[in-house]
Structures are given as C-alpha cells and as structure tokens.
Design a protein around this nucleic acid. Structure first.
Lengths: 235, 235
DNA sequence: CGACGCATTGATCGCGCTCAAATGTCGTGG
DNA sequence: CCACGACATTTGAGCGCGATCAATGCGTCG
C-alpha cells in the first residue's frame, strides 16, 4: 500500500518511512540574486514520520524545508529521547554538520523540502558572500532559538514550558489564536524535556485555569493570551 | 543577527563595569587572508565578573574572546538564572543578535577579547565570502554545541550532566586529565540546570565512585576517563 | 466488532529542590 | 602575622514535584 485515499495531511501514512518522491533538478533563473541556492536544489517530499537523515550518516546534503515540520532528535543509549530542534518552512537542515550527521531528522507530518548537494553549497559559500550571509543569518537566528530552549529546559516548570511552547507555535501559524499542534504528546514531551503524562497534566491545568481551550486533539485555542505570556515568562 | 541596522555614528561609548582597559585600534597587516577581521579589532580586557554586555543593550559590538572564559546567562523574572553558553578563546560573542542583546555576558575570570564595530563587520561580511564563511563556520559549530546542551538539560541526570560538563571542559584544556574549573559551583549549577547543592552532591558521588579526584576547589583530576565517558553518555 | 495508537487520569515513589547548619577558603585590615 | 568577616562549599533533613506504573477512555482502521 502506498498511500491512503484520504488527502488530509494528518492522516498517518502507512508506507515505509522515507523518501516519497525525488524530483528532477529544477531549472531556475540563474541570475536570481534573491535566492542564490535555488539553482542547486532538487525538490523532495516525505510522508508522515519519514526519515530525512539518520544520526551518523555521511553529511552529503543540505535541506531547506518548504512545507511541513521536521523534528531533530537525539537519543541516549538507554532510549531516552530529546528533540533538539523543530524546523518549519524556510528553515535549513544540516548546516551544523561536520562530516557526519549529528542527529536524526524526521518529518512530523508530510514535508516538502529542497535538497542541495553539500559540496556545491560549500563551494558557493566560499565564493559568494550573499550565499554565506544567507546561511549565517539563519544560523545566528537559530542560535538564538537554541538559547531560548536552553533557558526553557534548564529553568522552567512544565507549566511554563508548555505555555512557552504553545506561544512559540502560535507565532508560526496563520491564526495566532488557534494553535495547530503538528505533533503527538510524546513528541511535545521529548521537546520540552518532560514525560507525556506531564504534558497532558499541564495542558489540563492551563485549560482549567482558563488560559487555553483544547479544540480537538491537535488544536488548541488561546483564551487568555496575556496570562499565557505571563506564564511563559519570555522575559 | 548581523542585520544592516542604521545606528548613530557616534554612540557614546559607556564602558561596561568591569572593563579594565580599552586598547587603541590595532594596525594590522591589511592583506592577511587568514583573519579578515583582525584589522577591525580593538583589544579590550575585563576583570573577574566584569560585564561585557548586558541583556537589552544595543548590539553595537561583536567580540572575539582571546583569553579567559565568558558566561552568557539569561534571567527569568523571579530570579531564576540559566547560563546559556560558555565562551572560550576563539569564540565569538554577539553574532546572534537582532538589534538588542539577547543575554548578558560576564567574564568568569580575567578575560581579554577583541572588539569589532558591528556595522563594520556586517559590511565586511556582505563583501567578503571569507569573512562570512568564518563566522558561518563558527555559528554552525556553536549550534551543534547548543544541541548537545539541549540534550543534556532535557534528558540527563545530574550525575550525567556533571560528567558531560567535566569532559567538555577537559577537551578545552592543556592537560586533559586535570580539569581546571574556571567557575563557582553556583555557575556550574546555572549551566547544568540544577542547584548548587546537587552539583556538590554529584561531585561527591563521582569522587566516591572513583571517577574523579578533586584536587582543590577549582581543579579536578580525572581518575577513570572511560567510566566518566560512560556516565556522560555522549552517544 | 476487536485491535491498535494516542491521550487522559489516578496512585505511588523517589530524585532533586529547599531550608538549614557546619565547615572550608580567601582577602583584608589591624 | 593573625583575626576577622565574607563568601564558597559541603553535608544533613524533609518535602514536593514530576516520573513511573497502571487503568481507562477515545477515535481510527482492519
């Protein structure tokens, strides 16, 4: 079985995790100064839970997400899992690699991305300050996000973690008042450094306190934005 | 990050508390391809606990540490503190800024650094792929370190956190078997997302288990490197 | 329908936090 | 030089939060 008849994105795909379809090299306008990478890219697509790269693989590719959400996660030997990053449309995957891939990357829902040969990108960056600057700007921004996450993991309570997480998601979405949760409770737990039960309880707590209102399993409505920001304490 | 921001040409330069001495602009060999930044830099020095930059300040400067250790920390409203990064010789400070400084930076011991005018660095990066590449490479590496720290904070036990921390430090030092701790227990605690008592207890535990041997309060000898690596679980 | 995956809720346990006290270390001035 | 005080560190006692284990509910698919 390759694909369910349902087109809805959240339907779990049953086919083997991995690459759905690799496109042909796109013929892009060569002189496009706005996106120096475009000419190097190939479009690729992944099904829900598809594996983009696996920890330890040779780092031959650089990706740029065009649609969907990708989770970066690392495992400890005994199975403990931590999601070290969430990538959305526009984010790069694989900049931070030195020879081998440092963590696995999986599609959360369906994902489309551009894939660039790593060598070619490096050559481009060596010659084009525009290309290098593009990646540098993104890496700097990502570094900031990582610091936020470090503060969250090190010092925030589960309740505060969840509030911060929800607000972070809401900023990424069309309607900031209705948050679509692309991931399961387990994923959220692995992202926030708690257990899935704690995520569930914190969610219930925020609901009982009137800050949010769960719509369905994968969507939450922000009721009291101010109070939520207060809790998140994004000082 | 390194955005082109228009800022007053003459910012009244308030010397941060802790600044010992500001040097003169260094006249560097212009054609030095190895270090495209050198010509822009000024040497500065800070005393122990000196403030390099404070959260919220205008991000007018980029620093490169030449000696000593700098801690980056962020505070929550109620005083909880998290050290989001430690910078050593060769590390940059301030790449990840967008207009304002995102976290405070303090010298841990005595620190010397180069200071670059932010706008000049941005101009250089816009024109020189070498300069942009230098910063990009550093940012990528730092992003990797941040992911390690995220895994540590989210999923490791205090004992594992301390082991990882000690091993990380040892890699930075001349003699990898004798670790000099540049910081206090409180700082270590704020870096590892635990309390100072827990740091102390974990240290005692590693000592009793024969993995390390505290020499004095600011130095530790690694007795059983293999076991320590096992505990750190840097998978 | 039953099987499965995901989420919620409850009961209990133990690790790490908190509060508190004792001890050690360093810098400073008499 | 020693006495002193400030501060860093260690150690102890007790508690509470979040993890763990377990049961149940709920929606989807075969």
């Amino acid at each position: 079985m390759l694909q369910t008849s349902h087109q809805s994105a959240e339907t779990p795909q049953r086919f083997a995790p991995g690459l759905l379809r690799g496109g042909r090299k796109r013929v892009a306008p060569a002189g496009d100064g706005r996106d120096p990478l475009a000419a190097l890219g190939t479009h690729v697509q992944y099904g829900a839970r598809g594996t983009v790269v696996r920890e330890g693989e040779a780092a031959d590719w650089l990706f740029r997400i065009t649609d969907g959400v990708v989770k970066l996660h690392r495992l400890l030997r005994d199975g403990r899992c931590q999601i070290v990053g969430l990538l959305f449309a526009g984010d790069f995957l694989g900049i931070d690699r030195e020879g081998a891939v440092s963590c696995s990357a999986n599609a959360v829902g369906r994902v489309t991305a551009e894939r660039f040969p790593r060598r070619a990108v490096e050559r481009l960056c060596d010659s084009s300050a525009v290309a290098a600057g593009l990646l540098l700007r993104w890496a700097s921004h990502e570094l900031l996000a990582a610091q936020d996450q470090i503060l969250l993991l090190g010092r925030k309570t589960p309740r505060e973690k969840l509030a911060s997480f929800l607000l972070g998601l809401s900023r990424r979405q069309r309607d900031p008042a209705v948050i679509r949760l692309p991931m399961t409770r387990t994923d959220i737990a692995d992202y926030l450094g708690v257990t899935l039960e704690t995520v569930s309880r914190s969610m219930g707590q925020l609901r009982r306190d009137g800050l949010i209102k769960p719509l369905d399993r994968k969507a939450v409505r922000i009721v009291d934005l101010l109070a939520l920001e207060q809790v998140a304490d994004c000082a």
